[in-house]
Write a protein that binds this DNA or RNA. Structure first.
Length: 715
RNA sequence: GGGCGCGUAGCUCAGUUGGACUAGAGCAUCGGCCUUCUAAGCCGAGGGUCGCAGGUUCGAAUCCUGCCGCGCCUGCCA
């Protein structure tokens, strides 16, 4: 709503400048929100920039423009302020009219017996235009399928999922992919650990049985369609919401830490890894089969974890298919033919295929050892033993995402949890009904900033192959890692040195089994939320209490991960992550619930029908309402959702949307304490206050939905 | 050594892409507000040389240069 108005205003300003100031060509017209409401609804500092070009004082320019400017529809007046600002005031009554303030609170037929919120007259907003021509692929999560997900993976998944939601809201056609590295070292290590379980020591919990359990899990997952007969894989009950702590991914967490430690202590065992990798690549039984069992079972666990926090995927491309269906072979041929890679015959990388870095780096350090120059200058694509690196596979994958490989990725259903929707997973032989994946015109890779070097190289690879267009439409959606505060690390039992204790954060190590497991954190959040719900809703049955606690826990978690801007390292701390007060998800949810409560109460009044399904206001009532300076900032902020979405997309920063949701909740809470909506004696004003409450509830719920957060029915 | 990022209130962070008096939130601290549409809330107070030094500009937390401190990357791991 506001976005269209802003665009009209920008166009009008641009036309004015073109007409009167030829020197203004190319000037970007910035619109901002003035610091105080009495200064108007939009401010443009364009006269400051214009002043430089035409060499006249900014204020004089503003005063010259002000009387001549032809106001676009929706803008009531323009004023000159400060040293040369142009401040614009909306036609408030017109905005209220466009927002539907004159229409009835409830649709004809009135509030039903069920949820009255569903019977509210909907607000109609202009749909936003997609920016990209074709399909947009977002790749996120991408967890090694060899152990349970941890807090860092949650940041990735929540950021990626929120990006998807923002894109979809703007009308983009989005395909969500979660890449599964099922043939890498990490899976090989766990497979090797199971194979050598006797040497590893006896206190690992029943690996033999666990592997058998995993085998069952996998069989079920792959046999989608006949699932209902099976017990649920990861049972959840109101009082024990936790996924069983002995689930397979948790076991693998310990197994992986164990074998990593064993490798450090017994270097003689290192060949296990190479043997496992080789067996997986060659498809040799039994290790190759066991590795796939492990990987698929852990993927099933990851999907279950992510489903808990409202994260879902369209498809899971597996590395095994990238390799076995000749994706890599095709990419390698293309790279060779284009001369993008070369075979090293000497130096550090002798025997490898390498790719040159896009820009020649500065001369190596004077103290650098001979050969370091090569390391700086080139990246290995194929090792001297002929195996392809992660980097090489990534190039192949990226080419396929853009449809530049000329190969299709066959898929079949994968559905470990009958309650969750099926997801497509790549397979050697696909199902005929599988949709065609890949072939996007825009790609976002959600990967933490530690991999920016690699991502730059992948994009350079596209360029080297002549795919300039694809390179320009490849985005590394980068973010900083999640680390632990030293205090939190010690709380989890890590021994820290004095030096480490003074650090801002401690990086976690999966190999050492460090880190906060995602499900543990979610369980703690649910337990805390449940305690709060019990205090307030003691008479509800446990199932209903859980139904309230779950979205609150998820809201707290997702908001916590989204409120930091992407390039801020999150130093994780339980105290902050488990907080439900202040700038948190539950704060925003609480405001939305309060608004809904007012509306429910209004619907339940003895004689609502006539009043609540009647028109909310004539022109006079609307004008009087619009002139209320105390209400206007809330109305304006609530109407701004689409403009805020655009700001968030412009900066590719989901945190901006989170901040907006919080600001709106804050503004509404303030309103809530100042105005007793249901106690308003003037019936016309009361109806409009109810309408405003409905608008705010709608926008809060919409903003939360963009963040992947549900609005609970009560709090 | 090089690349990327960060340094803003006691703590954790925003700061609309160079602008408006008085640099904003949350947490923590202190003081008020529940017979009222739920206090997971509201109102108020204290607390800042925006790392340091120069520069550009009518105007700088924001841009440039140089320092200082911190993190990540710089693997024939992924």
């Amino acid at each position: 709503m506001i976005l269209q108005l802003e665009n009209r205003l920008r166009d009008a300003l641009r036309r004015h400048l073109e007409l009167h100031y030829p020197d203004s060509a190319g000037l970007v017209i910035v619109l901002e929100t003035p610091p105080r409401p009495e200064l108007g609804d939009f401010a443009s500092p364009l006269c400051f920039e214009l002043a430089r070009r035409v060499r006249r004082p900014p204020r004089a320019l503003a005063q010259a423009i002000q009387p001549q400017f032809v106001l676009p529809p929706g803008i009531a007046r323009v004023e000159v302020a400060g040293a040369g600002y142009l401040n614009f005031f909306m036609d408030r009554a017109a905005l209220l009219g466009d927002l539907g303030f004159a229409s009835a609170l409830f649709q004809p037929g009135g509030a039903p017996a069920g949820d009255p919120i569903a019977a509210l007259t909907p607000f109609v907003f202009t749909p936003l235009n997609a920016r990209y021509k074709g399909k947009v692929i977002v790749e996120h999560t991408n967890i090694n399928p060899n152990k349970a997900a941890h807090i860092g993976h949650l940041r990735n998944a929540v950021l990626g999922d929120t990006l998807v939601r923002l894109l979809r809201r703007r009308g983009e056609c989005v395909e969500v992919q979660n890449y599964i590295d099922n043939t890498g070292v990490q899976v090989a290590d766990v497979a090797a650990a199971f194979a050598h379980r006797d040497e590893l020591g006896g206190d690992l919990p029943a690996p033999r049985e666990a592997l058998e359990h995993a085998r069952q899990v996998r069989r079920r997952a792959l046999a989608a369609g006949s699932l209902s007969a099976w017990p649920q894989l990861f049972p959840r009950t109101p009082d024990a919401p936790a996924r069983a702590a002995h689930s397979f991914d948790y076991l693998c967490w310990d197994v992986y830490a164990r074998i990593s430690q064993y490798y450090r202590q017994q270097p003689a065992a290192q060949p296990w890894r190479a043997a496992a990798l080789h067996a997986i690549e060659a498809g040799q039984p039994p290790l190759a089969e066991e590795a796939q069992i492990i990987a698929d079972a852990v993927v099933a666990a990851h999907l279950a974890t992510m489903a808990r926090i409202n994260v879902a995927y369209d498809m899971l491309p597996r590395e095994s298919e990238i390799l076995h269906l000749d994706f890599w072979a095709r990419a390698f041929a293309l790279l060779q033919r284009a001369g993008a890679i070369r075979h090293e015959t000497s130096g550090k990388n002798a025997g490898c295929w390498v790719m040159e870095r896009p820009r020649a780096r500065a001369a190596p350090a004077p103290d650098a050892a001979p050969g370091d120059e090569d390391a700086e200058a080139a990246k290995v694509v194929v090792r001297s033993d002929g195996t392809v690196t992660y980097f090489g596979k990534d190039i192949a994958y990226q080419l396929w995402k853009f449809g530049l490989l000329g190969l299709e990725l066959p898929c079949r259903r994968f559905q470990p949890d009958p309650a969750a929707p099926a997801v497509w997973m790549s397979a050697p032989k696909g199902a005929p009904e599988a949709p065609r994946f890949g072939g996007a015109s825009q790609v976002f890779n959600v990967i933490d900033s530690r991999q920016s070097d690699l991502q730059e190289m992948v994009i350079a690879g596209l360029r080297a192959l002549g795919h300039e267009e694809a390179a320009r439409h490849s985005s590394h959606f980068s973010y900083e890692m999640v680390a632990l505060t030293p205090r939190c690390a010690e709380e989890l039992g890590y021994q820290l040195t004095e030096e480490e204790r003074a650090r801002p954060h401690i990086e976690v190590s999966g190999r050492k089994g460090q880190g906060v497991k995602a499900d543990d954190l979610i369980d703690r959040l649910i337990a805390d939320a449940l305690a709060e719900v019990r205090q307030r809703h003691a008479r509800l049955d446990p199932g209903a209490q859980f139904a309230l606690a779950l979205p609150i826990a998820v809201g707290a978690l997702r908001y916590f991960l989204l409120k930091f801007t992407r390039n801020t390292v999150i130093a994780f701390d339980f105290k902050e992550a488990l907080n439900f007060e202040g700038e948190t998800g539950p704060y925003v949810q609480y405001a939305a619930v309060r608004a809904a409560n007012i509306l429910r109460k209004a619907a339940a009044e003895p004689e609502p029908a006539a009043a609540l399904t009647a028109s909310c206001g004539d022109a006079d009532a609307l004008a009087a309402f619009a002139a209320d300076e105390e209400l206007w900032p809330l109305i304006r902020l609530a109407a701004r959702l689409d403009a805020q979405l655009e700001i968030a997309m412009e900066a590719m920063e989901p945190a901006h949307m989170a901040k907006y949701a919080f600001a709106l909740a804050q503004s509404f809470n303030n309103f809530y304490h100042r105005h007793a909506v249901l106690g308003e004696s003037d019936p016309r004003r009361r109806r409009l206050l109810l309408k405003l409450t409905a608008l705010v509830r709608h926008q809060l719920a919409a903003a939360l939905d963009l963040l992947g957060i549900e609005t609970p029915r009560a709090m």
